[in-house]
C-alpha cells in the first residue's frame, strides 16, 4: 500500500496561486476556505523586511492531532496515508480545528470572508452548503469529498477522488506520466514551474523519496510531533519555511 506524500520545492514556487485556483475549481472552495492556499507574509523588520510566500495544503500528518482529538472518529486516516473526514459522522464540534497546528480545516457555516456571499446566490439543496453552477468531483460524503454539507468540517483530501483511482503500486503521480495524469492532485497538476511532486513516501525509488533525501526535505513545525507527509525543499535561494506560525510573531 502506498503512503501518499507531497514535496513542495520552495525554490521553484513563484507564489502564483495557480495551485489554489485549481484546488478551488476542483473542490468548489471559496476564498478563506481554500484547502490549498499560498500564504503571503513578511519576515524580519525594517530595514530588512522580506515579503515571502508559502504554499500550504493539509499536511496529511503521520500523527494527525486532528484525528486523535476527534471524538467521533469522523476524521480518519486511510490505509494509503491520507487524512479524511467522514461527513456523515462529523458533529461539527471543531475540536480538530483547534488541534491542527497548521490551520487547514474549515467550518463554512460562518460569515464569508469575501462579500457578497456567493453561496447565497447558489443556495444548496438538502444538507449541502451551496450549489455551485460548476461542480467538481462526485459527492462522496464518507470521504469528505464534494460540496461541503452544513455543520461539518472540511479539509484538503489530496484529491482523494483522483488518487484513489491510480493504479496500485505506482511510485509517483506526475504530469510526465501521460497515462496516469488524470490521477494527479489538482494543485500538482497545475503547478506551472513544477514545484510540486506527489508520490509514495514508502517507496524508496519514488521521485518524492529521492527528492526528500537528496535535497534534505524539511517539515513545517516538526517539533509538534505531527510529522507531516508534506515536505518542503528549500535550498536557501530566498524562500524558506516560516520561522513562526504567522500573526504577531515575537521578534
Amino acid at each position: 500500500m502506498a503512503r501518499w506524500g507531497m514535496v513542495i520545492d520552495l525554490d521553484k514556487c513563484t507564489g502564483c496561486q495557480a495551485c489554489s485556483t485549481a484546488c478551488q475549481m476542483e473542490n468548489n472552495r471559496l476564498p478563506g476556505e481554500n484547502y490549498q492556499d499560498v500564504l503571503y507574509y513578511t519576515e524580519g523588520k525594517q530595514p530588512t523586511p522580506v515579503l515571502k510566500w508559502f504554499p500550504r495544503p493539509c499536511m496529511h500528518c503521520e500523527e494527525p492531532s486532528c484525528m486523535h482529538v476527534c471524538p467521533t472518529k469522523a476524521t480518519f486516516k486511510t490505509e494509503d496515508g491520507v487524512v479524511l473526514i467522514d461527513w456523515n459522522k462529523c458533529i461539527g464540534c471543531k475540536y480538530c480545528m483547534i488541534a491542527c497546528p497548521y490551520g487547514v480545516r474549515f467550518y463554512t457555516d460562518e460569515k464569508p470572508l469575501v462579500e457578497p456571499n456567493i453561496k447565497d446566490v447558489y443556495p444548496g439543496e438538502g444538507d449541502l452548503s451551496w450549489n455551485p453552477p460548476y461542480k467538481g468531483p462526485q459527492q462522496d460524503n464518507a470521504h469528505g469529498v464534494g460540496i461541503q454539507p452544513h455543520g461539518v468540517v472540511s479539509k484538503c483530501t489530496f484529491c482523494y477522488h483522483k488518487i484513489s483511482k491510480a493504479p496500485k503500486g505506482i511510485a509517483d503521480l506526475s504530469n510526465d506520466d501521460a497515462a496516469n495524469r488524470e490521477f494527479v492532485p489538482a494543485c500538482v497538476r497545475t503547478c506551472a514551474p513544477t514545484a510540486r511532486y506527489f508520490g509514495d513516501l514508502d517507496n524508496p525509488k519514488s521521485n518524492v523519496s529521492r527528492l526528500i533525501s537528496d535535497k534534505r526535505g524539511v517539515r513545517l513545525l516538526d517539533h509538534t510531533g505531527n510529522k507531516p507527509q508534506v515536505y518542503y525543499l528549500s535550498g536557501g535561494a530566498g524562500p524558506a519555511v516560516p520561522s513562526g506560525r504567522g500573526g504577531a510573531n515575537k521578534a
Binding site: 471524538p71 467521533t72 458533529i91 461539527g92 464540534c93 471543531k94
Partner: peptide, 26 residues
C-alpha cells in the same frame, strides 16, 4: 454551538475515540 448536536448522541458513544479528551469529557 455544535454543527450536529443530535448526531453527537450516537456518534460519540459508538465511535469511542479513546484518544480524544472530548470523548472522555462527554
Amino acid at each position: 454551538e455544535l454543527g450536529h448536536p443530535f448526531r453527537m448522541l450516537w456518534a460519540i458513544p459508538t465511535s469511542f475515540q479513546y484518544l480524544s479528551p472530548l470523548n472522555w469529557m462527554g
